[in-house]
């Protein structure tokens, strides 16, 4: 079985600070209105007791990437290690992938007239470095791993996250523990 590189998002440690999202933008030199990694507030009453908790999401590097299936120009590549890469030079900006992805991951850049998305900083990985988001997280709430090795203690979804079974998302979650209001 091949490797499935993906992200683990520890919502127990995530404090919603947005450092990951900014570091990603810095490293990948993105337009101001483009974010490849986004920090979401989880709806406050999801777990009954209102609370403020967050999750940080980027590309889920799916096993069956809907973006790749939808792309008419073969701009997407699923690497041997599982990383889904978008080749900008082959992109014609048709936006099919944007509609196909259930997680709203591919982002259409109005200036470049092309799509872009998180590529798990594969060139950094190939250099033995961590992805920009992982190395910038002040609370070590994100890491990258071959997710085939992960057991059931890691959740495949969190409330608000679309059904991960459709495209076989490789993102795994550590569930947030919920504060007890006294």
């Amino acid at each position: 079985m091949g490797r499935k590189m993906g992200f683990v998002v520890d919502s127990n440690r995530c404090i919603g600070c947005h450092s990951c999202s900014m570091a990603c933008k810095n490293y990948n030199q993105l337009n101001p209105d483009i974010t490849w990694r986004t920090v979401y507030d989880i709806k406050e009453d999801t777990y009954g007791q209102p609370t403020r908790i967050t999750m940080s999401l980027a590309c889920n590097h799916c096993d069956i990437p809907a973006c790749k299936e939808a792309c008419p120009t073969n701009a997407y590549e699923k690497r041997e290690d599982g990383i889904v890469i978008h080749h900008e030079e082959r992109c014609i900006g048709c936006g099919m992938c944007v509609y196909a992805c259930p997680y709203n991951v591919p982002q259409f850049d109005k200036e470049k007239k092309k799509v872009g998305k998180c590529h798990l900083c594969y060139e950094r990985l190939d250099n033995g470095q961590s992805p920009a988001c992982v190395s910038s997280c002040p609370t070590q709430a994100i890491y990258h791993i071959d997710t085939t090795s992960l057991g059931d203690e890691f959740a495949k979804s969190l409330p608000g996250f679309p059904d991960p079974e459709i495209t076989k998302s490789t993102t795994r979650f550590i569930k947030p523990s919920i504060v007890r209001k006294l």
């Binding site: 127990n12 404090i15 919603g16 609370t51 403020r52 908790i53 504060v179 007890r180 209001k181």
Partner: peptide, 19 residues
């Protein structure tokens, strides 16, 4: 334990929150 008038993001990480 977090003691605060607001259930902050810090409170969201605590075991107990006292508003």
């Amino acid at each position: 334990v977090v003691i605060d008038p607001i259930l902050t993001n810090t409170a969201g990480k605590a075991h107990d929150f006292i508003q």
